[in-house]
């Protein structure tokens, strides 16, 4: 029963990622696409957590942490790019 619940949650997350991919490709504006990509990252982290419950292993925990870090940095850089237009500036007080 519990395994069936976890498999159902995996299926729901897969459908959600497909819909997010539709939003990334079709999205009318740039912030829509960025938020959809951040949501894809969160959904992938959730899928990895469910998978590590299903397989009864703790081998994916480092992958989850690393993916969270990379998704955070990617979202921060995209947000800075659409707000400032430049990614890395030489002197921020200038």
């Amino acid at each position: 029963m519990f395994n069936l619940l976890l498999l159902g949650a995996l299926f729901v997350f897969a459908v959600a990622i497909a819909l997010f991919l539709y939003r990334v490709c079709k999205g009318p504006s740039i912030p829509d696409r960025i938020i959809a990509m951040d949501a894809i990252g969160v959904s992938l982290i959730a899928m990895m957590a469910i998978l590590s419950i299903l397989l009864k292993t703790d081998a994916f925990f480092e992958v989850i942490l690393l993916f969270g870090i990379l998704s955070f940095i990617g979202t921060v850089s995209f947000a800075k790019f659409i707000e400032r237009g430049v990614l890395v500036d030489y002197d921020r007080n200038r």
Binding site: L66, I69, L70, I73, L87, V88, D89, Y90, D91
Partner: peptide, 16 residues
């Protein structure tokens, strides 16, 4: 991963 931490720092702060 250390390089990604420094990349986050250089995104938020600046090169100087």
């Amino acid at each position: 991963v250390i390089a990604s931490a420094v990349a986050l720092l250089v995104l938020v702060y600046d090169v100087k």
